[in-house]
């Protein structure tokens, strides 16, 4: 399964960076959401190939269990990423209210005075 995950991770990162480099706020926002997803997938892939293993719930039953630590890390990362996404949404809204535009390149046109 790792090869599919590797390709998928690559695609996710590529898509997220592509979106991030746009000028529209919406694209940038989507880019960040995809970026968090991409990093989470990357992290979970660090636990190795899950084929033939069970979930880390120690019920009865035997057999190899998948590595639980990356899953815990990803959980933390998802929550932190969520907090950041919400903050980013609010920030974009606030900038939109002040600058009246959703185009990032229009934000940074040179202004009259040096300040």
């Amino acid at each position: 399964m790792q090869i599919e995950t590797a390709l998928l991770v690559g695609l996710l990162f590529a898509v997220s960076v592509y979106l991030l480099l746009h000028k529209s706020f919406v694209r940038i926002l989507f880019g960040f959401v995809t970026l968090t997803n991409a990093t989470n997938l990357f992290l979970i892939s660090m636990s190795g190939d899950p084929d033939g293993k069970r979930a880390p719930i120690l019920a009865e039953g035997s057999g190899p269990i998948v590595d639980p630590l990356p899953q815990a890390l990803v959980l933390t990362a998802i929550v932190i990423g969520f907090g950041l996404t919400i903050y980013l949404i609010m920030l974009l809204y606030r900038i939109f209210l002040d600058a009246k535009t959703t185009d990032a390149s229009k934000l940074f046109l040179p202004e009259a005075d040096d300040e």
């Binding site: 991030l20 970026l35 991409a38 992290l43 990356p70 980013l88 920030l91 202004e111």
Partner: peptide, 28 residues
């Protein structure tokens, strides 16, 4: 007028955080 200057700060550092996660995972 100044709030938009915060945006590049956020953009670069958020990307940096994502990179940190990648590095941490790789380190593990």
């Amino acid at each position: 007028r100044h709030i938009k200057e915060a945006f590049p700060y956020l953009a670069v550092n958020m990307f940096g955080s994502a990179l940190f996660l990648v590095a941490a995972g790789l380190a593990y």
